[in-house]
Design a protein around this nucleic acid. Structure first.
Length: 495
RNA sequence: GGCUUCCUAGCUCAAUGGUAGAGCAGUUGACUCUUAAUCAAUUGGUUCCGGGUUCGAGUCCCGGGGGAACCA
C-alpha cells in the first residue's frame, strides 16, 4: 500500500467510476433516477416561435455528445431518437451547487433536462436549462464522434456505438424500419392479413437451401429452421385466407457474403384468384409507395454502377430466353427441344468465359449465363418472365409452352429482388414436379403440403421479396451487413 | 473451404529492422452565446495472442484468433 494516490487520470473508465462512487457516497445514484421526456429533440425545436425566447418549456432527455465548457456557462448537446439538441447551462440560472455537479458530467452520460427554448445569436434553437438529472452514467468513453467509428468489426459487434457516432448508419437503419412499415401499410390497404407461421419445421421446404438443424428435447426429435414461408402460407389459402402475407426471418445454412446473411428477412405474399401478373401490380405498388412515402423520390443513384434507377411508371418486361439469346448473340433458345441444345448451351457459356461444371443439367448451364451475365446488368426494374420450368417446381406451367412457367423474377440494381409465380395448385402436377427435380438445387418433398393441395387450393399469385436486398437497393448500402442491425459474426469472447 | 489483406493509446491514424508518435478524448487551469469552441500545461502503450530469426522485431518468418475483399 502506498499513501500516494495511484494516478488514474489517464484511465477514463477509472475516472468515471470514481465519479460514480463519489456521487453514491454523497447520496445520489444515477441508476436509480429517471426523468421525463415531453418532446424529442426535433419536435421540441419546432415549438420555438421566432422572436419569443424563454417562453416555451420543454423536458428533453438523451446522451451527452458535445460538451463546451465556457467557465461559468456550458453549451452541450444531447442526442435522442430524433437527433441532437443544444442545451445552455448557465451558473446564474441553475445555481452554484447544480452547476458544480454539471461540470463533472462526461461525454456519453445520459441526462434529462428541463427549461425554456431560445435562439442563440448564431441562430441555434437551444434549451436554457433550469433543472437537469443524470439518469445513467456512462462508464466507458464514446468513440470519438468527429472521426466516428471506422473499425468494421466494432461497428458490427458493438452496433450501439456505431448508431451513436456514425449518423449514416443510424439513418440507413432507421430507413429500413420505415421501409418495412410502408410495406405493411401497402398490404393492409389491400386487405392482406399478416400471419405468423412456425420457424421450427419437420421438413424445410419451399426453397432449395441447406437448413439449420436444432433439437427439441421433450419431443426427442430434430427440427429444421425454415428456409422459406411458402408452403405454410399456401396451406392458409387452402384454409380460406384469400390474401395473406408474412414478414419473417428465414434461415439458410450457407456462406456469408456481401449479399448473404445466414438469417434474413423475407416477405411472402399470396393472393387467391390472382396470378403472377397480379403480383407485378402489387410489387410495383409496394416499391412505389416506399418511393413516395419514405424516400420522397422515384429516382435513386445505384451505388455500384452510378446509374440512375427510375422506379416511376410501368416497368420493363423481358422474356428469359430473349435475354439469353441476346447475351449469347445467337438463337440458342430455338434449339431448346433438340438434341444439340446441351452442347450449344455449354459452348455459349464457355464463350462468355463461364466455368461449366460437368454434372450440371442443361438448364443449370443456361441459368449460369443468366445469373452471371444478365442479372448483374439489369439495373432498371425489369420483370424477367417465361423462365424454364426446372427453376421453380412450385409454379404453374405456361399454357402455350409447357417447358416454361408463369412466373417473373424482378431484377433491380443487378440483384434479384422478388420472384413471383402463378402458384401450382394441381396436386398431381405438383407431386410430379417435386419428383422430377434434378440438378444441384432440390426442394424437399412435403407430403403434408400435397395432402393440403388435394383438398383444393384456389388459383393464386404468390411472391417473395428479399427485404434485406430491397433495403440495400433503396438505402444505397454496399453490403447486407449495413442494413441488418446485428449481422451474423463468428462468436467470440468479450473483447 | 481457397487466395489476398488488415489488427498500434478510449477513437482516427503515423512510425527504412534501430529510443513507439500525432490529432481528438482524458487530467489540471483560464474563459457567462459556443458550433470540430479557443488558450496554456499534461497523463496515457501486453503494438490481437504464442513461438522463431536477429546484437536489436510494431515491422521479417511460422502457428493461432478475429475482421474485410475476391473466389467457391
Amino acid at each position: 500500500m502506498s499513501d500516494i494516490p495511484q494516478d488514474i487520470t489517464h484511465d477514463q473508465y477509472a475516472v468515471r467510476l470514481q465519479k460514480l462512487q463519489d456521487m453514491r457516497a454523497a447520496g445520489f445514484d444515477p441508476f436509480r433516477a429517471n426523468c421525463e421526456q415531453t418532446y424529442f429533440s426535433a419536435d421540441a425545436m419546432k415549438l420555438h416561435v421566432e422572436g419569443q425566447d424563454n417562453i416555451v418549456a420543454v423536458k428533453v432527455a438523451g446522451r451527452l455528445v458535445v460538451i463546451r465548457d465556457m467557465g461559468k456557462s456550458h453549451f452541450v448537446k444531447i442526442f435522442d431518437q430524433q437527433g441532437q439538441i443544444q442545451l445552455y447551462v448557465k451558473k446564474d440560472v441553475v445555481g452554484e451547487e447544480t452547476y458544480v455537479a454539471f461540470k463533472k458530467l462526461d461525454l456519453g452520460d445520459i441526462i434529462g433536462a428541463e427549461g425554456t427554448l431560445f435562439k442563440t445569436k448564431t441562430g441555434e434553437i437551444t434549451v436554457r436549462v433550469e433543472k437537469y438529472t443524470l439518469v445513467a452514467k456512462a462508464l466507458r468513453p464514446l468513440p470519438g464522434n468527429w472521426h466516428g467509428l471506422a473499425d468494421p468489426e466494432q461497428i458490427y459487434r458493438q452496433r450501439y456505438l456505431d448508431l451513436i457516432v456514425n449518423p449514416e448508419s443510424r439513418e440507413r437503419l432507421m430507413l429500413r424500419s420505415r421501409i418495412v412499415a410502408s410495406v405493411r401499410r401497402t398490404l393492409a390497404e389491400r386487405q392482406f392479413l399478416e400471419v405468423e407461421t412456425p420457424v421450427l419445421e419437420g421438413v424445410a421446404g419451399g426453397a432449395a437451401a441447406r437448413p439449420f438443424v436444432t433439437h427439441h428435447n421433450a419431443l426427442g426429435t430434430d427440427f429444421f429452421l425454415r428456409i422459406a414461408l411458402e408452403l405454410r402460407l399456401k396451406r392458409l389459402l387452402v384454409g380460406g385466407y384469400d390474401r395473406v402475407f408474412e414478414l419473417g426471418r428465414i434461415f439458410r445454412n450457407e456462406g456469408i457474403s456481401r449479399k448473404h446473411n445466414p438469417e434474413f428477412t423475407m416477405l411472402e405474399v399470396y393472393q387467391a384468384y390472382s396470378d403472377f401478373r397480379g403480383m407485378m401490380v402489387l410489387i410495383r405498388a409496394i416499391i412505389q409507395d416506399i418511393c413516395r412515402d419514405v424516400l420522397g423520390k422515384f429516382e435513386l443513384v445505384h451505388t455500384a454502377s452510378g446509374q440512375v434507377i427510375n422506379f416511376a411508371g410501368e416497368w420493363r418486361e423481358a422474356r428469359y430466353f430473349d435475354l439469353i439469346n441476346e447475351a449469347v448473340g445467337s438463337k440458342l433458345s430455338a434449339l431448346r427441344d433438340t438434341p444439340g441444345y446441351r452442347e450449344a448451351a455449354i459452348v455459349a457459356a464457355q464463350k462468355l468465359g463461364l466455368d461449366v461444371h460437368a454434372g450440371w443439367e442443361t438448364f443449370e448451364v443456361v441459368n449460369e449465363i443468366f445469373s452471371k451475365k444478365i442479372e448483374p446488368a439489369l439495373i432498371q426494374p425489369t420483370f424477367v418472365t417465361h423462365l424454364p420450368k426446372e427453376l421453380c417446381p412450385l409454379a404453374k406451367l405456361n399454357r402455350e409452352d409447357a417447358g416454361l412457367i408463369d412466373v417473373f423474377e424482378l431484377c433491380i440494381g443487378g440483384m434479384e429482388i422478388a420472384p413471383a409465380y402463378s402458384e401450382q395448385n394441381d396436386p398431381f402436377v405438383q407431386r410430379e414436379m417435386f419428383l422430377a427435380q434434378a440438378g444441384e438445387d432440390q426442394q424437399k418433398m412435403d407430403t403434408d403440403f400435397l395432402l393440403a393441395l388435394e383438398h383444393g387450393m384456389p388459383p393464386a399469385g404468390g411472391m417473395g421479396v428479399g427485404i434485406d436486398r430491397l433495403c440495400i437497393l433503396l438505402t444505397g448500402a454496399e453490403s447486407i451487413r449495413d442494413v441488418i442491425l446485428f449481422p451474423s459474426l463468428r462468436p467470440t469472447g468479450a473483447k
